Simulated assay, not measured.
Amino acid sequence: MSKRSKIILIVIAVFFIAALIWFGKKNAKSIVEYETETPFRTTIVKKTVATGKVIPLEEIEIKPQITGIIDKVLLLEGSKVKKGDLIATVRVVPNEQSLISAKGRVDNAKLRVNNSAVSYKRTKNLFDKGVIARTEFESVELTYNQAKQDLKNAQNDYQIIKRGSAGSGGSANTNIIAQMSGTILEIPVKEGDQVIQSNNFNAGTTIASIADMAKMIFEGKVDESEVGKLVKGTEIEVSIGAIEGTKFPAKLNFIAPKGTEEGGAVQFKIKADVSLDDKFFIRAGYSANADIVLVKKDSVLSIKEALLRFDKKTEEPYVEVKQADGNYEKKTLKLGTSDGVNVEILEGVTKDDEIKIWNKASKDDKKKED
């Protein structure tokens, strides 16, 4: 082989080696490129949602004052009533044994009255003639008056057992009237049903329930982890499932001092006065949700939560910030309030820092996190 051929081969070999080195270095560089974002100032609002329903503020149940059978139901559910309006009437069905016993007491009282009347007339004639003393006459007169009073009491007892009341007040017990103005929500009885008056051993039969539909409240429950952040008087928004696209303002006025366990979690009852809109008719028992602001911070330095990473060992949050040479430096952060999308930054980065937007995780990224 000639000297010229050797030189050509050597040059080709040098170029080939140089090309290999160049391609090797080029391939060694990461082909992954990252975009960046800078922190920004925004308002962060942390909310909780309480599920519940809207119910009337004032609702009463009307029960009978006597035991009997519903004779007539004069109004329907949904009717608007004023205090004193007649809703239904009750017919008394007396107990036969009690009725016979009461009738016997009346007859006995009449016998005593008749006997006392005869004695009274005889004694009065003698007293008028001066035959007997005044004290003896007054004693007989007292016995006669007591007998008449006993007869009256026995007759009243008989009328109460027979009709439900004595004298002209009979309708006061048999008439079921509205005790407040409002709307009849429910009449759970019908004509012919037997009803029982309330007493020490029985709550009695509910004939009707009435509520003022112009005053509604939201009643719901919140978890124990959030109840400590609630404050009475807080303005909230109530969304009613049956009325889409409308939120009703409300004010929190009650937070239960004691919780109840439901499904392994302790729930606390809350109530809020709802401001109604005349355009909508709100029915009692509508399901509703209440948006309650727990924390609100205005114009705080924030980043998107998607930019965060968490150290597997310390579990501390961090981001990677772009440096002047194009490399990224890990910065541990101290976080504040989060709304699920943005998170407040207390320490770690400034508003001018360029934070890496993480692409789909690669092996190199995983090695860095490890």
Rank of each mutant, 00 (worst) to 15 (best):
Asn108Asp: 10
Ile355Asn: 00
Glu33Tyr: 02
Asn125Arg: 10
Phe248Glu: 03
Ala154Cys: 01
Ile236Val: 04
Arg134Glu: 15
Gln159Trp: 01
Ser299Met: 07
Ile196Glu: 12
Thr350Asp: 03
Ile132Glu: 08
Val54Asp: 09
Glu320Gly: 04
Asp157Asn: 09
Val231Asp: 08
Ala109Tyr: 00
Asp352Arg: 03
Ala28Thr: 08
Gln65Arg: 12
Gln179Leu: 13
Val90Glu: 00
Lys363Gln: 13
Lys229Val: 04
Lys80Ser: 13
Asn199Lys: 06
Ala28Lys: 07
Asp311Gly: 07
Ala250Gly: 13
Gly204Tyr: 13
Lys148Arg: 12
Ile357Thr: 05
Asn359Phe: 03
Lys351Leu: 08
Ser30Val: 05
Lys247Trp: 13
Gly24Val: 07
Gly228Asp: 04
Val11Ala: 12
Pro257Met: 05
Lys258Gly: 02
Leu294Gln: 08
Ala18His: 06
Asp365Gln: 09
Ile10Trp: 09
Ser5Asn: 14
Glu224Leu: 00
Asn27Val: 11
Asp278Tyr: 11
Asp277Gln: 10
Ala288Leu: 08
Ala178Trp: 03
Ile270Cys: 02
Asp311Asn: 15
Ala208Gln: 04
Lys121His: 08
Lys232Asn: 15
Lys271Cys: 03
Gln267Asp: 10
Lys83Ser: 01
Ser119Thr: 14
Arg41Pro: 03
Lys63Ile: 06
Val118His: 11
Leu86Thr: 00
Thr143Ala: 14
Ser181Ile: 06
Leu307Glu: 02
Val118Trp: 12
Leu301Tyr: 05
Ile44Trp: 01
Asn342Arg: 12
Leu301Pro: 01
Asp298Thr: 12
Ile357Asp: 02
Gln159Tyr: 07
Val231Pro: 03
Ile270Gly: 01
Gly340Cys: 01
Phe127Tyr: 10
Arg163Leu: 13
Tyr120Thr: 02
Ile176Gly: 00
Met1Tyr: 15
Asp71His: 10
Ile207Ala: 02
Ile184Cys: 04
Glu138Trp: 09
Asp352Thr: 03
Asp277Met: 02
Gly169Val: 08
Gly78Trp: 05
Tyr286Leu: 14
Ile8Phe: 10
Thr135Gly: 10
Ser198Tyr: 14
Ser362Gly: 06
Lys63Tyr: 07
Asp353Thr: 02
Ile8Lys: 15
Glu235Met: 15
Ile292Asp: 03
Gly220Gln: 01
Ile177Lys: 09
Lys232Gln: 14
Lys363Asn: 14
Arg105Lys: 13
Val300Ile: 11
Ser2Cys: 12
Lys121Asn: 12
Gln197His: 14
Lys363Met: 13
Ala272Met: 00
Tyr286Ala: 05
Ile210Cys: 04
Tyr286His: 12
Ile60Gly: 02
Gln197Asp: 14
Ser338Leu: 05
Ile132Ala: 08
Leu335Val: 08
Ile160Arg: 00
Leu86Gln: 00
Ile240Met: 11
